[in-house]
């Protein structure tokens, strides 16, 4: 995938995902002018009219939202939204192709870190190693979307296996950069992981916004590793 195609695909996905977030905000009566303007920027970005201005506008609105809610409204998903917008904005502001590519490469590296770091901090924690931490998430955390899901807390073997599957996937994720097919398979697995989080814990925004960063990583892998490591 070329750099231009990657940037455009990221922008298109971002436009739809931010529009979805904005409609949710409007439905619960949050600052109509702010989220209305955000929708207009998304429309411009999707159809490619005033694209760079729309991206900078969306970035500016994200900063205003940080002020309005005194922090992220939706934790990590808002942080990822701002990170992607920042990288895409910088790619448009870059004086030449090298710096534009660096902006998108930063996003790709952060996506890899998002999996590796969160896997590493779990795998060194005895509570996660035993499956107890995931059991606690189901038993008393604020995340399960129904009381019925709390019964999962007692499925110790299933949670032990799920914990290790997630930790290994996250920690080994950087290695998949060495091979394009391995990366594609890993991205399918991480997408399935986000999907399960959306179903069990209602984290729908995480699912969509993390997908928006995937094209940058596919491009990055091709750009850096496929050139550096010849395939025999």
């Amino acid at each position: 995938m070329s750099f231009e195609d990657t940037l455009r695909l990221t922008e298109l996905m971002l436009a739809f995902v931010i529009a979805q977030q904005s409609l949710e905000h409007l439905s619960v009566r949050h600052s109509p002018w702010l989220f209305g303007l955000r929708l207009v920027c998304c429309a411009c970005l999707a159809i490619g009219v005033f694209g760079p201005v729309a991206v900078w506008g969306l970035w500016g609105i994200s900063v205003l939202m940080l002020h309005r809610f005194q922090g992220p409204y939706n934790g990590g998903s808002d942080k990822m939204t701002i990170l992607i917008l920042s990288c895409v904005s910088l790619a448009h502001l870059a004086p030449n192709v090298f710096w534009a590519e660096m902006a998108l490469a930063y996003l790709a590296v952060q996506l890899v870190l998002s999996y590796f770091v969160s896997g590493w901090i779990k795998i060194v924690n005895p509570e996660w190693q035993s499956g107890r931490a995931l059991s606690d998430v189901f038993r008393f955390s604020a995340y399960p979307v129904s009381e019925g899901l709390r019964d999962w807390a007692d499925r110790r073997l299933v949670l032990f296996l799920m914990s290790w599957a997630v930790m290994l996937l996250e920690v080994l994720f950087p290695l998949t950069l060495l091979n394009a097919q391995a990366l594609q398979l890993a991205l399918l697995c991480t997408a399935a992981f986000h999907l399960s989080n959306a179903c069990f814990f209602g984290l729908n925004r995480f699912f969509w916004i993390w997908l928006c960063a995937y094209p940058s990583l596919i491009w990055f892998q091709e750009r850096v590793f496929e050139v550096a490591i010849p395939v025999w």
Partner: peptide, 19 residues
Amino acid sequence: LFGLLLPALIPSWRFFKTV
């Protein structure tokens, strides 16, 4: 505001370190 923005630009990604 910059203090709120910085964790988004250089995220720590420490999801669920402990419950």
